[in-house]
């Protein structure tokens, strides 16, 4: 459905994207995940036509749209801070995309109003059409922005940090709701986020980006359980990193077991309850670095100052070039 071929983009002397290849299938829900400056928003904007790549192509259903401007690409775009038109009421905001159509394409006033009502119903804001954006809560504004984007009946929905400006509780509710909407409407959606939890929870596939490159594309399961690069391993989920003779050993706190002997010695520095587990912070004695270990909440945690022996149940090790090396637990 959407294909990006070798897309590069520079802003002055700053290279924002180096040769991005990405294929998004019909009906997929894709997350672009990465730290700020990783190029994820730039990629999203290039797909939308808000920014133009220096080289490479963007294809919608095998048609090259690289030169087509944003107004003709027909994509729904939800902006980070919603970008609602504050001098228009909610209904006019939603109807905007229909009312700027020209000639024969322009629906009648009644049809536009009806469609706006319908969309407001869809995003559960029925009856709020006469309000102005400043009179709505953050979550409501977000839904107006979504309804406005959906009004032009896009096949592709792009969302830039859609939940960034919302507080934690609202964010969680909206996430689930967006997921359902995506399915119900048969959309293809791409959203940008720096929040790994959001990406892993919502997306069919996650695209992890760093410094203008794609580090890994995979299902949440693959990304979490089998990170392809040290960056992904470190950025997604919590990871202990221990250097070992030119290699770097990565293991998750919850993949670590206490052993009675033959493990690595760790001096317990802090113990606290973290959700359903005990979180142990300790100093790995051989290297004097901090490691984090999760233990079953039902077990008795070690006491402060105690030296415990640990052993990763699962780990990945990477050489200096970042390539993964198969290995057995030591």
């Amino acid at each position: 459905m959407i294909r990006c071929n070798a897309i590069t983009k520079r802003f002055g002397s700053f290279a924002a994207l180096h040769g991005i290849d990405l294929h998004v299938r019909q009906g997929e829900f894709i997350a672009l995940l990465g730290p700020s400056g990783s190029g994820k928003t730039t990629l999203l904007r290039i797909i939308a036509g808000l920014e133009f790549q220096d080289s490479g192509q963007v294809l919608f259903a095998d048609e090259d749209v690289s030169k087509r401007n944003v107004a003709d690409r027909h994509v729904g775009f939800v902006f980070q801070n919603y970008a609602l038109f504050r001098h228009m009421n909610v209904a006019h905001n939603v109807a905007f995309g229909l009312s700027v159509r020209k000639g024969r394409d322009k629906p009648s006033r009644a049809a536009i109003n009806e469609r706006a009502e319908e969309l407001l119903r869809l995003v559960q804001l029925e009856g709020l059409g006469a309000r102005y954006p400043s009179q709505l809560s953050g979550g409501q504004r977000q839904r107006v922005a979504l309804a406005r984007a959906l009004a032009i009946e896009p096949k592709l929905l792009l969302l830039d940090e859609p939940f960034g400006a919302l507080d934690a509780k609202v964010r969680k509710d909206l996430r689930r709701w967006l997921r359902d909407l995506h399915k119900a409407m048969g959309l293809t959606s791409i959203f940008v986020t720096h929040d790994q939890e959001e990406a892993l929870e919502l997306a069919d596939r996650v695209v992890v980006m760093n410094e203008g490159r794609i580090e890994q594309i995979g299902t949440p399961e693959e990304i979490y359980m089998n990170p392809a690069t040290p960056f992904v391993s470190h950025f997604v989920g919590e990871t202990n990193r221990v250097g070992q003779g030119g290699e770097e050993l990565h293991f998750r706190p919850h993949d670590t077991a206490l052993v009675s002997q033959g493990g690595e010695a760790v001096l317990v520095d802090n113990v606290f309850r973290k959700g359903g587990v005990w979180r142990i912070e300790g100093i790995l004695q051989t290297q004097q670095i901090l490691v984090e270990i999760d233990l079953d909440a039902a077990s008795t945690p070690p006491s402060l100052g105690e030296i415990i022996q640990i052993r990763p149940r699962q780990f990945r090790s990477f050489n200096q070039a970042g390539a993964q090396i198969k290995g057995e637990p030591q």
Binding site: F11, G12, F14, G49, F52
Partner: peptide
């Protein structure tokens, strides 16, 4: 930095 790029959708 984006100010330097002349070609944008909204200019």
């Amino acid at each position: 930095m984006s100010r330097e790029t002349a070609l944008r959708a909204t200019s």
